[in-house]
Simulated scan of single mutants.
Amino acid sequence: MSSMPFDYSVNQFTTTPWSFEQDVAHYTEAGIGVIEVCQDKLDADRSKEQLVAAVAAGLAIQSVQPSVRTMIPSAGQPEPKQLPQRLAVLRSCVELVAPFAPGAVFVTNTGPAPGGDMVEAIAQTVSGHRELAAVAADRGVRIALEPLNPISLNQESAIWTLRQGLDIVDEIDRDNVGICFDTWNLWQDGNVLDSLRAAGDRIFLLQVSDWRTPRSGADRRSVGTGAIPTGQLLHAVYDIGYRGPCVLEILSQGVPDSVYDTDLDELLHTNRAALDKSWQTIESRDGIRASQ
């Protein structure tokens, strides 16, 4: 039985070599009860059928990665070019998945600052999220803006600290728009613990993996095998009241020792064990006790 106070969830990018159907089968076999759906894995002709099957198998869809997440065209999501069309694609994702995922969190990013104009990037992010928030509110779901690691600047993101993300969320000023806190993206933010304490209930989603100096834009490692102080961050998020899922999100492309080439069933098991160990280690060291 897990000692960690968060439900263990898996983002489908973590098991990229598997199909959507294989994800459902392997996750449930591993005793995982929560999934982060990646729209890229849905078949356009069978998407509703696939979502029905996931829920029927006992997987709660508590978070979603739309195929288009950025307000501004990015290296990984270059099309469509204009914000209204990008919002239309985002809207269609919310409309598709929300009926199967009550209360779920849809992850978004800013995209890169156009021509280095961060002011314009923030303006488009604010306006886009206000429009998207209304769509999400009508369907009982939420939006979580994700600040990304500086490695993604000028490619996928215009912001790289939690404080920047919180400032944008404050400006958006919608109750159903908050932050996706990804440990890989934010652990090097020098003010991350202070910013977390200031975040309160605006942390909508927690994602985890581990860090080594990356050799590609997608070179994440299993929890406990890198430099991230995972236990400390788990407790910091818990202490501000977060009780949502802890989502394993490992991206591993363009590297010779990709985790995608390993035993993915074992990957699911070892990361859950590593998260439990990370929680317990900090709990023991600091005398922190999670409420039961």
Results as ranks from 00 to 15, higher is better:
Ile203Trp: 14
Thr183Trp: 12
Tyr242Leu: 09
Ala236Asn: 09
Cys180His: 04
Ser258Asp: 14
Gly224Ser: 05
Asp219Gln: 05
Leu248Cys: 10
Leu234Asn: 11
Asp182Trp: 10
Leu234Pro: 12
Phe204Ala: 03
Asp170Glu: 15
Arg212Asp: 12
Ile228Thr: 11
Ser195Glu: 14
Asp182Pro: 10
Arg243Leu: 10
Ile172Val: 15
Glu171Lys: 08
Ser222Glu: 15
Gly241Gln: 03
Tyr242Asn: 05
Cys246Thr: 07
Asp219Ile: 04
Ala199Phe: 00
Asp263Ser: 04
Asp257Asn: 07
Ser216Gly: 08
Gly224Ala: 08
Ala199Pro: 07
Gln232Pro: 13
Val223Lys: 12
Tyr238Asp: 06
Leu234Thr: 13
Arg220Tyr: 14
Val259Phe: 00
Leu248Pro: 07
Thr230Lys: 12
Ile240Phe: 14
Val192Gly: 12
Gly217Tyr: 14
Thr225Ala: 07
Gly217Cys: 06
Gly178Tyr: 00
Gly226Pro: 13
Gly244His: 10
Cys246His: 12
Val208Arg: 11
Arg220Lys: 06
Thr225Glu: 14
Arg215Ala: 02
Arg220Pro: 04
Arg220Val: 06
Ser258Ala: 10
Asp201Ile: 03
Tyr238Pro: 02
Thr225Ile: 10
Pro256Arg: 05
Tyr260Ala: 00
Trp211Thr: 02
Asp175Gly: 03
Asp263Ala: 06
Phe181Asn: 01
Arg215Gln: 06
Gln207Arg: 04
Thr213Trp: 15
Gly224Pro: 09
Asn191Cys: 08
Gly178Val: 01
Gly224Lys: 09
His235Asp: 10
Ala236Gly: 07
Arg221Tyr: 15
Val177Asn: 03
Arg174Gly: 08
Val223Leu: 14
Gly254Cys: 08
Ala218Tyr: 15
Ser252Trp: 11
Gln232Arg: 15
Cys246Ala: 12
Asp194Val: 04
Ser216Phe: 12
Ile250Met: 09
Val177Pro: 12
Tyr238Ile: 03
Glu249Gly: 00
Gln188Ala: 11
Pro229Thr: 13
Gln232Tyr: 15
Gln188Thr: 07
Ile179Val: 01
Ser258Asn: 03
Phe204Thr: 01
Ser222Cys: 13
Leu196Met: 02
Asp201Ser: 07
Asp170Asn: 14
Arg221Val: 10
Asp210Tyr: 09
Gln207Ala: 09
Val223His: 02
Val237Thr: 02
Thr225Pro: 06
Ala227Trp: 15
Val255Ser: 03
Asp239Gln: 13
Gln207Asp: 11
Thr183Ser: 13
Thr225Lys: 09
Glu249His: 02
Arg243Val: 08
Arg221Thr: 09
Trp187Asp: 10
Ile203Val: 11
Val255Met: 06
Gly241Cys: 02
Gly190Ala: 09
Pro245Met: 01
Gln207Ile: 05
Pro214Leu: 05
Leu205Asn: 11
Val237Ile: 01
Arg215Glu: 07
Gly200Leu: 04
Trp184Arg: 08
Ser222Pro: 10
Leu193Met: 11
Tyr260Ser: 01
Gly244Ala: 07
Gly241Leu: 04
Gly190Leu: 11
Ser222Ala: 14
Pro245Cys: 01
Gln253Thr: 05
Ile172Trp: 06
Ile240Leu: 14
Ala199Tyr: 01
Pro245Thr: 05
Leu233Gly: 03
Asp219Lys: 04
Ser222Gly: 11
Arg212Val: 12
Asn191Ser: 10
Ala218Val: 08
Asp210Gln: 08
Ile179Met: 13
Leu251Tyr: 14
Gly178Pro: 02
Gly254Glu: 14
Gly254Thr: 03
Ser216Tyr: 15
